[in-house]
Simulated scan of single mutants.
Amino acid sequence: MKLFEDTVYIGEIVLQVKIGQKAYERLKFYEDTIDLWTSIQSILIASANISKILWPNKEYNDRGVRLRKMLNISDDNILRDRTFRNHFEHYDERIAKWFEEGANGVFIDLAMNPDLSFSSQNTKRGYNTIDETVVFCGQKFDLSKLNIAMLEILEKCKPYTIV
């Protein structure tokens, strides 16, 4: 039985959810571009930290399985996918690839309310305040759905810790 170990991990999940929640709340009251992108990046990092606890690398897979079972979290949970966090964490690699593939000279970054079709590959990073989605190179990710998923996990953690 790994109850003590599991409660330590659950405590960290709770902390990361609270960090993500604070950042999500700040999205509605940002003062400038840096403030907005600090919040977005904080949300993505907090959610990725939760993801790494629940879906760790192979060496710690048993822990992830045990915690997901304990908290009744399915494998199709939105938190499992760390693609958007990786876009931000490995931004340098994404830009290098863009240049290697023949950059077209149009570079749009940190766009606010970019084209609602999100079809532009030229918008590297963007945020849509209307539907709370973050955009990276034409891909779209819903931060409100991510926030809901984190809050659902927080509820599932309550029996195991003081939340």
Rank of each mutant, 00 (worst) to 15 (best):
R80P: 13
L67W: 00
D109C: 06
W55I: 08
L36A: 04
I19V: 15
A103Y: 11
L27F: 01
Y9M: 04
P114I: 08
H87V: 08
E5G: 03
G105D: 02
I45R: 10
T129A: 12
I108S: 14
G64K: 00
R68V: 03
I40N: 01
N104S: 02
A111R: 07
G64M: 00
T83F: 13
E12R: 08
Q16S: 09
S42N: 13
D6A: 08
N104P: 03
T123N: 12
S39H: 04
R66V: 00
D35P: 08
K52F: 08
N72H: 04
E12Y: 07
Q41V: 14
F136M: 00
I34H: 10
L54A: 02
R63T: 01
Y91G: 10
E31A: 10
S119V: 15
G20C: 04
P114Q: 09
A48S: 10
N61K: 03
L67C: 00
F136E: 01
I73E: 01
K58Y: 01
Y24A: 02
P114D: 08
Q21H: 11
E132D: 12
V14G: 06
D76V: 06
L79E: 10
Q16E: 11
L44S: 03
L116R: 14
D32A: 14
N72C: 01
F4D: 11
T33H: 11
I10C: 07
A23Y: 04
E101Q: 04
T7K: 12
L116Y: 15
K22I: 11
T133H: 06
L79K: 03
L71Y: 00
S42M: 05
A46G: 06
E31V: 11
L67H: 00
Y60F: 00
N113A: 04
M70K: 02
D75A: 07
F136W: 01
I34Q: 14
A96Q: 10
N86C: 06
R94G: 12
L110A: 04
E5R: 10
L110V: 08
L79M: 07
N72V: 01
V106S: 08
V65G: 00
I130D: 15
Q21V: 14
N122W: 14
G126Q: 12
H87N: 07
N49W: 13
F107D: 10
Y24I: 02
L67I: 00
M112C: 15
T129F: 13
A111G: 05
T129I: 15
A48G: 13
W37E: 05
T123L: 15
A111V: 12
F88Q: 09
E93N: 10
L15W: 08
L44A: 04
D6C: 08
G20H: 05
V134K: 01
L79A: 07
L67F: 00
A48E: 11
N128E: 13
L110G: 15
D35Q: 13
